[in-house]
Every structure is written in C-alpha cells, then in structure tokens.
Amino acid sequence: MESAQNRLQAVSRLPWIWAFLAAFLVWLATIIFTQGQGSAQILSAALSFATFSVIVGIGQMYVITLGPGNVDLSIPATMTFAGAVSMKIMDTQDAMVLPGLVIALGCGAAVGTFNFGLIRALRIPPIIATLSSSFLVQSAAIAYGRGIKIKPPPMLAEFTTYRIAGVPLLAICVVGLAVLMGVVLHRTVYGRSVTAIGQNQRAAELAGISVGFIRFATYLLSAVLAGLCGYLLSGFSGGASLNMGAEYLLASIAVVVIGGTSVAGGFSNLPGLWGAALFMFLLVTMLNTFGLSAGFRLILTGVIIVGVITLAGGRKQS
C-alpha cells in the first residue's frame, strides 16, 4: 500500500516537472548551439507567446477536467469573434480600453452560454455542440470584421507588449491568473466540484454536487477566457485577424495534455500549462536555430504529443 501510495503521489507531481524540465533542456540546447547569444531574448519571447496558450489552456483544462467527452472546440472562433468585436468598438481610442475588455469578455460569456444551451437543449456531446457553435461564431466574426484588420488602441498595444527588465508584463499578469485559477481549483467549492465530476459524475451527483450548474459554469469560463485571449492577442499582434485563433485549437489541447492534466478527467495540473506552453515555443525555437524546416518542427511536436499521451496512458479499463 505504502509504495503504491508513493508512486501515485509521485506520478501526480511528475508531469509538470517534466514539462518544465523539457522546456529548460530545449532552451539549454538552443543557447549552447548559439553559444549563449540571445538566450535572454529567447526566454522573453517564449514567455510572451506562451502567455496566450496558457490563457486558453486554463479554460480548456477546466473543461477537459470535467471528464471524457468534454472538450471546447469553439475556442478559436470565440477568440476571433471577441477580438474583432472589441477592436471595432474600441476604434483605436484609449478611452475605450476598459469597455472593450468588458465587451470581449461579454462575447465570450455569450458563446459559453450558447454552447451549454446546445449541450442541454439538443442533448448532444459537448464536442458536437462546441463544433456547431464555432461555425456560427466564426462566421459572425468574419461578417462583422469584414476582413479588415483594425488596429488596437495604443494603450492596449503598449500594455500587451510592455516589458519590465525584459520580462513581459502580460506574462506576469497571466502567472497571477494561473495562480488564482489554481486556488479556485483546489480551494473553492466550484473547483472541487469540477474535479469531483471529472472523476465520477454519478458519485458527484450523489454527493450533493449540482452537476448541471458546474458544467455550465465551466463552459462559460472557457469561453470567457477565450474572449480575454482574443482581446489581448489582438492588442499584442496589432489587431484582430480572421485566422488569429486557428492555431489555438490544437495548442489549447496540446498544452493541457503535455502539461500533465489527465485526459480522462478529474485531475488537472495548472503549473504544467506554463511548462508545456514554454516547452512548445522553445522547441520550435530550437528546431529553428538548428535550421530545421517547419515540417520537422511540426512532426516533432506531433510525435511528442502522441508520446506523452501513450506514456501517460488512458483511462484504465473498468
């Protein structure tokens, strides 16, 4: 019993350590190759880009923690939609930065509510519901944005790219967000309920947890964070573009899996999101420095995802 116990604890801690360790090793390999040149810039850039994966990764992680079949495919569409709407309404005016944020979050909340409404009303698996709604939302974003890239207000652009001693301010904020969401996960009734549902939905219901409400709140959270990410990314990259969310569908799931969260549900790993996001960016940087083509970079990313999930294993056969 004792050793099984230790092993379980060890396994529960290992995954995110591995992600950070891997990120560190990849960074080390890169700077050895460049003989130390640009080591700080690489880290700084990695922090900047990892930030956005982490924001959507947090939402996706909460959703995936709800258990098998739960995944939010509408994240990219929500990002694009929230980015487009908020940029257009702010119309590059600094005074509108806060209202713009509220609008972006509101777009997310609307999508999240719609997603859960579909899950409940049509009694369809979340994947199908978020897939269908992503079609609608993406379309709305295209129609609304009309393909024109509207610049963000200078203040927002400044904020999202500001660095304190080389460390992106946004990354510091998102570390704070991750800590906050970690507290929510472990020390609030909501967070406990999410992990309980993911481990055993029926047991959660019989323990008095209102499963429906918690699932609703979780899809809402995921979509709101996607809205936030769309807002910030638009500021960071000089405006909302129509395919700005595209890579975040796979990225949001990938950072969750590599970060050590259980795909079978019930166990999430917040620090791992950061480790995984940094690792994925640094890996690409390393392969770039080595002069490998985009093809090899993608193949290696894919092999790592498949490798991680194969080692972590699936849900045990009952």
């Binding site: 079978a264 993608l298 193949i299």
Partner: peptide, 14 residues
C-alpha cells in the same frame, strides 16, 4: 486504451 481525440490531434501535427 488511449483517447483517440488526443492521439489523432498529435497526428495532425505529424
């Protein structure tokens, strides 16, 4: 006994 969603997602990169 792996989740097909994650494996095929990884394969999409490959």
């Amino acid at each position: 006994n792996l989740p097909s969603i994650v494996v095929t997602l990884g394969m999409s990169f490959v």
